[in-house]
Design a protein around this nucleic acid. Structure first.
Lengths: 352, 352
DNA sequence: TTTTAGCACTCTCAAATCGAGAGTGCTAAT
DNA sequence: ATTAGCACTCTCGATTTGAGAGTGCTAAAA
């Protein structure tokens, strides 16, 4: 016998309405309610038949015999991939958001504010992964002698980001030597990537080790030390508004919330997860366990990478219950990533 | 008729045992239990009479007619002020703690680790208020010209703490002028307080305005800008282990916890509160509303200031439920403050 | 063939009831 | 001053109950 196409337009439409309604109300949706909402002039009984089909396909589920249905994670996935109609953001709102972002003084402030804004506008948790050290542009370096052969390295990179680091010099250097080393690096490498600079330096030293004087070798060694991300920007992940997540009943169970909170703050896993999003542009969505983390069972993560000079350097997004208003959140994350990128580009004025 | 002394030794002893027991178990203590615990060979009935007296004095209270009694905030206060016997810390534990503190690389790391350690060892929340900018020792300053008349100021203060700041120069300066200004400040003021330096500078300029050349005035103005704490170290308060507070049933009610969490992170109030502790040395304890904050109704705050060169520069402590093990927490906070002070002193090596 | 009305059935949730247990306050005896 | 005894109060968990919501199935209608 011919199997009827499991997903005709009507079923899809009903799924869409069901998901929207569930996102709105947070209650399992029954056949009667869905019949009214759908505007298809069908009786609850008919709706029930369709719902039974959708349940067979694993798209919706009922918490118990006599409750309505709610979307499963696959249901959400299908909804997001093919049914979702995003709601465009209001001009007014966009302007305000941009306002708040560009008024920040430094890149660090900017990204912190962004994390806060993400959480405030969505009433969920905002996350921002800072630009990786390696992908930053080398702009200027300076050495300052401290006591006992230690040196303070000041490294200014692309976005006017300033890094301080104290290193142990391989030997004593005179101020003149330090100045010379700094001058060399500054004139030769300004504008290149920090990681490139290091590579180039290493290669050149290797290729020409014999021909170089001890002084030069020392200086090169020094520079190499200075460029090492020895002090990686302490946990390059900003999380804010975690507490908002307590407002969602599905996450508000003490131990579950605690687990979630800890995963969010024990940042390694988060960083690894978000790192995967940096590759391809546009908004990415992880639903439930898709993120590979038990603690996120009932959560979705909506992310987008942001770029400086057309190059993706970081990732930002929000975390909330799977039951979130994707139609609003997705364009918001998308927009925020673009605004942040633009603002960071503006802030990166080259030093003299 | 002669009113019998309301608080004889026996009553005090019973109060002490009751508080200890309540801290241990978290359950209201009944007369039978207290009779056994107290070791006084009294019957529950007698105990009941004493308990009634203590209740009249507002030191203990019963949540309902037929539950045991639990301490009120005044009860805790009396307990802490006159009944508490602190338990000395184990040598072994002290060594470990010190180990963890001194192994940190920088003052910033050290204080962050301290906050974490406070929360981990007490299973409550740890707070550390960073040294105020003003009370830091001026050690070294450097100016780096950027584009468009902006200058990067690098200010090294007492504890090897490095501050970067970008300022708009009042006019263009030549590198030589900048060098001269830096040299002047470094040679003249090294080792003084940052705030003192600023004051002195202002005064001298005011006193001798007419006699000074425009160049010198400009340089002074520049230095003044540079020393302004224009970018106050972003919220100088580290909080960690907040989530631990969820484990205490008395704080685990969603909305109450949320309020607490927000107060803790909306740092202004916390900073103001802890600032009051910096004046006098030793451990300070705020019980319940003593801290002046509704959100802390059921919390106690145990703090101590820590010192560099015998001068109190910051405050640290823990926050937990009023029902905390004061006998262990108090010596712990005390010790931690001392270890942190010592470690910070060690780390402050003057630059060459 | 698709849709619908009807109906018995299932399950949850909130309210009501109940008994056990803990602890009290008071009184009278020691 | 202390204690035994006792009636009383209150909480807490288990159990019951009824209302409400929603389902699946069947048979009739379109």
């Amino acid at each position: 016998m011919p199997i009827k196409p499991p997903l005709n337009d009507r079923a899809l439409h009903l799924l869409k309405v069901l998901v929207e309604r569930y996102i709105d109300e947070g209650q399992p949706v029954g056949s009667r309610a869905l019949a009214k909402e759908a505007g298809l002039n069908l009786s609850p009984a008919t709706i029930r038949n369709v719902m039974a089909d959708l349940e067979d396909l694993g798209l919706i589920t009922a918490p118990h015999t006599s409750a309505g249905r709610m979307p499963t994670n696959s249901g959400y996935r299908l909804f997001i991939d093919t049914l979702l109609t995003v709601r465009p953001l209001e001009e007014q709102f966009i302007r305000q958001l941009n306002e708040e972002i560009v008024q920040q003084q430094s890149p660090a402030d900017l990204l912190e504010a962004t994390s806060r804004l993400l959480s405030e506008t969505t009433h969920m948790a905002g996350v921002v992964m800072l630009p990786r050290h390696e992908t930053q542009t080398f702009t200027h370096i300076e050495f300052l002698p401290l006591s006992e052969g230690r040196l303070l390295v000041i490294l200014i990179s692309g976005q006017q980001e300033i890094q301080n680091k104290i290193i142990q010099a391989p030997r004593e250097f005179t101020p003149a030597e330090l100045q010379a080393a700094a001058n060399f690096l500054n004139s030769r490498f300004a504008g290149r990537d920090v990681s490139q600079v290091k590579e180039t330096l290493l290669r050149e030293v290797r290729d020409a080790r014999e021909k170089l004087s001890q002084e030069l070798l020392d200086a090169a060694h020094l520079s190499e030390l200075a460029l090492n991300p020895a002090a990686p920007p302490r946990k390059p992940l900003l999380v804010s508004g975690e507490i908002n997540l307590m407002d969602f009943s599905e996450l508000a169970h003490i131990d579950q919330f605690r687990h979630l909170f800890e995963t969010l703050h024990q940042k390694e896993d988060m960083i690894r997860l978000m790192d995967r999003c940096i590759q391809s542009p546009g908004v990415k969505i992880f639903i439930g366990e898709e993120s590979g983390h038990r603690a996120f069972d009932q959560c979705s993560l909506v992310t987008s990478s942001y770029s400086i000079n057309d190059r993706a350097v970081g990732v930002l997004g929000v975390i909330g219950p799977t039951r979130m208003e994707y139609e609003r959140v997705i364009p918001l994350v998308d927009l925020t990533a673009k605004l942040v990128g633009a603002a960071l580009n503006l802030q990166s004025l080259p030093p003299s």
